[in-house]
Nucleic acid binder design. Structure first.
Length: 573
DNA sequence: GCCGTTTTCGGCCCGACTGTTTTCAGTCG
């Protein structure tokens, strides 16, 4: 079984948790967490680097020791240090760290004093009042633990698209207070991450207590978790946790930067501050010696302090954006306005909600120059897919429609299923007459990596195929990505003159930001596809653009920023 | 355990809030 970067990262995180419970040196613990972060953000499989004999200690936050441990994990699938630690502290104890309010110290005390070694044991101890009797615990803490245990089942992150309307109404509520001059949702929401854990909201105002009070009185608040003079934290009826910070003007830029994150970006920026004799926190940037404030009103001022240009939130992940900013090599990121067409659209011919004509009209309304109609082929059993005859009939209908359209070209396409053996669900003869052929997996998603990769490569061998749609098949919070060697797939696609799709549906966003960046490194362009099943479905393109931006993509890296006349030759295999 | 344009040793981001305290430890982000 190949060892994935996320596996190694998770193992390091587990080691960090166990060391923390043991009371180890905090910096050693952080070293494991930093290394885990590096691994999670690495665009290449670390197993490949090991196989190629590359020096892993060249990677940030990975020295000789951890490089050796990574090699051991890749080669054996195990880490002796972890096995050793887990003998003392079983995973079910480390799991207790996930309960809000419980950190390593308290988990350790629960175990040592009460023998608590699992969630079930903790629940029993709390219910019988044993926890509150413990040093450093109390009645409130005991209740918080019981609440936390009850809440743990539904801790999935929220889809960005689902949080947007919540942000809009919350923004209205907070803005309505007289003292509030400006409101921003920061955090991973502002970085346009595909999912949001909780929401960080900033309000520009001088009267903190009044604003946190007003915030806690929002009609959708189910529970106030904490409330102070400058901060408040609530859980909404929807279950989403929202943290509000009230900030005065002179600190607003520093606070926006701080609470937008990512944490890794902030830490890296503060490293630069320390090196420059400055202190950077959410109130501003200050001279170390004189404590004098030198920036803080805007984010621009703070980046400027380090001779850096403004870095957009989507790039703030400490994945090289600070160095790129210093070198003047930040990417000129793709925007929604750059997109000229959509290459993934369904209609009533298969499982779409709207007709060919309605979809074409919706594309025109949105200013698109071209729209590829790509209904399903027969193998997708849950919908009525198009067989060769039905597809030919649709092609005729598209020809007729195009005669009536001036500023939109409707393209004849298909989303053809890749069958289990890698062959396609429609004959070559009909595929050959299309403008665009997407291929995609919808069945047999559980094959092992080697088999799945070979299956997809065989599909890409078909000279009529242009695009591999939603390449990993994941559905966020519902279905994990398939096992597939994407590096091989991307290289094969580049060889064969086809491309991969970045599917823009909010629950897919498939490829991930890291994969988008890898495609760019390999010189493989992508297409951003709405996979629209209705007229409104075309509006999700912007989520695809968000993801592409997080993957450092520029307009040139995305094929459907170009006129169709420029794309067609690319697809002429 | 990592890292170095002051350093190969001695640092390592830092402040708010809570709960259990009576001056602060632990947790969180």
């Amino acid at each position: 079984m190949p060892v994935h970067n996320a596996d190694v990262a998770a193992l390091f995180e587990d080691v960090a948790d166990l060391l923390a419970i043991q009371g180890e040196n905090a910096f050693r613990i952080r070293a494991y967490r930093n290394a885990a972060r590096t691994l999670n953000q690495l665009s290449r499989p670390v197993a490949d680097l090991v196989a190629a004999g590359e020096d892993l200690s060249d990677l940030p936050d990975i020295g000789d020791d951890l490089a050796g441990k990574i090699a051991t994990i890749v080669e054996t699938g195990r880490l002796p240090l972890y096995d050793e630690l887990a003998q003392d502290i079983p995973p079910s104890v480390a799991d207790l760290l996930r309960i809000p309010g419980l950190g390593p110290k308290r988990v350790r005390r629960l175990r040592d004093a009460l023998g608590v070694d699992s969630r079930a044991a903790l629940k029993r101890a709390a219910e019988t009042g044993k926890v509150q009797a413990l040093d450093g615990f109390g009645e409130t803490m005991e209740q918080n633990i019981l609440d936390g245990l009850a809440q743990m089942s539904d801790d999935a992150r929220w889809l960005l698209a689902r949080v947007e309307p919540i942000v809009a109404s919350l923004h209205d509520h907070v803005s309505a207070h007289d003292a509030v001059e400006r409101v921003d949702a920061a955090g991973s929401y502002r970085r346009r991450k595909e999912t949001v854990g909780d929401l960080d909201v900033l309000a520009l105002a001088d009267d903190g207590p009044a604003v946190t009070e007003h915030f806690a009185a929002y009609e959708d608040v189910a529970e106030t978790l904490s409330q102070g003079d400058t901060r408040a934290s609530v859980r909404l009826r929807s279950g989403l946790q929202v943290d509000l910070r009230v900030v005065p003007p002179k600190s607003y830029g520093a606070a926006l930067l701080y609470f937008t994150g990512s944490k890794a970006h902030n830490v890296a920026l503060r490293d630069r501050a320390v090196a420059a004799g400055l202190k950077l926190n959410e109130y501003g940037a200050f001279r170390d010696d004189t404590e004098k404030r030198v920036a803080g009103t805007t984010e621009d001022d703070i980046y400027d302090l380090f001779d850096l240009p403004y870095i957009v939130p989507e790039l703030r992940e400490n994945r090289g954006e600070l160095d790129a900013a210093a070198d003047g090599t930040l990417p000129d990121l793709v925007t929604r306005a750059d997109l000229r067409g959509n290459l993934h659209t369904h209609t009533t011919y298969s499982d779409g909600l709207h007709s060919l004509e309605e979809m074409a009209a919706a594309a025109q309304t949105r200013g698109l120059e071209y729209l590829a109609i790509t209904d399903h082929s027969p193998a997708v059993a849950v919908v009525q897919g198009l067989d060769a005859d039905a597809l030919r009939a649709q092609m005729d209908a598209i020809d007729r429609l195009n005669e009536d359209l001036d500023d939109l070209r409707v393209l004849k396409g298909i989303e053809v299923d890749i069958l289990k053996d890698g062959s396609l669900d429609l004959p070559d003869a009909v595929l050959a007459d299309l403008d665009l052929c997407l291929c995609a997996l919808h069945t047999a998603l559980d094959l092992d990596e080697e088999t799945q990769t070979e299956r997809v490569l065989r599909a890409l061998d078909n000279p009529h195929v242009h695009v591999l749609a939603h390449p990993t098949g994941r559905r966020i919070n519902e279905r994990p990505p398939i096992e597939i060697d994407l590096d091989r797939v991307m290289e094969a696609a580049a060889d064969r003159g086809c491309v991969l799709e970045l599917n823009a549906q909010p629950e897919r966003l498939d490829l991930s930001d890291v994969h988008c960046r890898r495609a760019k490194e390999l010189g493989l362009p992508l297409v951003i596809g709405a996979d629209a099943h209705s007229t409104d479905g075309l509006d999700v393109l912007r989520y695809g653009v968000d993801q592409a931006r997080r993957g450092w993509l520029e307009a040139d890296d995305v094929l459907n920023t170009k006129p169709w006349a420029d794309i067609a030759p690319v697809f002429d295999r």
